[in-house]
Nucleic acid binder design. Structure first.
Lengths: 125, 125, 125, 125
DNA sequence: GTGGTCTAGACCACG
DNA sequence: GTGGTCTAGACCACG
């Protein structure tokens, strides 16, 4: 279910967090859907249980998942509108793209493509 | 000239790298323009000279700046087209924005605004 | 494993970089092989950990090694073909050899011998 | 007469040393030929006189040039055979070329070409 | 004065 | 335990 790249500079727990959120955005995971237990996911992926636990803690902190007595960990309802600093964090990469010679149109196309791939990947979900 | 936030999780040297590149993109720094010496910038910002040197080394690796014997450090010519993985790195943040309830149009507007602020800050560029 | 000459004018970190690359070329280190940890190598050689780290960083920049989360540092896959300015850098030494009275044949023999020693040191490569 | 690249990582005095030796090897400068005075060369090239002086000192130390009372600095007789560690210094670059995917034949061709260019450039000398 | 190298030692995130 | 970051301070080559 999750793809972890141990060669990446992105921490493993962070990769997990990102992939759970991506799955929610793609509709592969819906509110109420259960996530595997920490031990289960650790065993399946070979990731250190502490690392999985840290990812779950972070996801719970971000209110992406919620632990329900007896049911385990499930996807939380998606909030209507959250404050996020994601926009600020993109600035260095947009700077990078400009520096690499991309025009405004090319950059917007890149972003648009990323959006479409995220929202379009679940035709078969 | 440069704004360092010591409390940020982004390493100081990385903040410096990003800000130099941003200044180039904004046209505030042009090819051939001199950067302050390592010691000078360290003194001005209160950052340790080793940390400044690390930022300069990284910028030189990325060919953003070039060290000229006896003259110090200057902005390099901007390359025509570089390979960059910046697009890939934006995906998590776009996911984040979708998760936060933004529509495709809103996201494209955000990116467009970031672009305009980067390129528009310098009337006489 | 590595021979460092503190009295050399070649920086210690550079000696380390060269020796790792030489070992890869000789087949003594193969893609996937683990390098000792920074601290380990520092302790073994008596070199400061920062200096070892600097060598590793440089090797990573050159994509000779790759750091894998939790696993440490391993030799990267060898690229098919890289751009290198090594040829240009040899010119002064060839000039030197000509100046020292060597004929073209003698110089080619010297280079050939260096090559053979590099590639031949490892019978089971 | 001399080409100095202030953007190179090779020290300026070292570039001067190399170019004088190259000129000798190419036959552009012959034993007994006079070199410009330190001040003269410094004025012509814009190089710091201290730097030119350092290059001359180094060339004199290597017995490439010799200062003759009244005549100034001239090219020395070329020695029959000198000991040189140039071969050792080439090893890192040959390693580099192997690493970059070059075969033994390709490397020998590169060296042969460098040799030919050095010895062939003076058709019009 | 300038960048480059090196050591020593501390702290932190990750797994 | 491992790499990454940062500070402090020393020394050197170059120009």
């Amino acid at each position: 279910m999750f793809n972890i790249d141990i060669r990446s500079t992105v921490p493993i727990y962070e990769q997990l967090v990102q992939q759970v959120k991506r799955s929610v955005v793609q509709g592969l995971l819906k509110p109420g859907d259960a996530l595997p237990s920490v031990r289960r996911l650790a065993a399946d992926t070979g990731i250190n249980p502490n690392t999985v636990a840290k990812a779950y803690r972070e996801l719970e902190h971000q209110k992406v998942i919620i632990t329900i007595r007896g049911k385990g960990t499930v996807i939380n309802d998606i909030p209507t509108q959250i404050d996020t600093d994601a926009a600020d964090k993109m600035r260095p990469y947009i700077t990078e793209l400009i520096y690499a010679g991309k025009t405004k149109e090319e950059i917007l196309t890149i972003v648009s493509d990323i959006y479409d791939k995220l929202k379009g990947d679940n035709k078969d979900a």
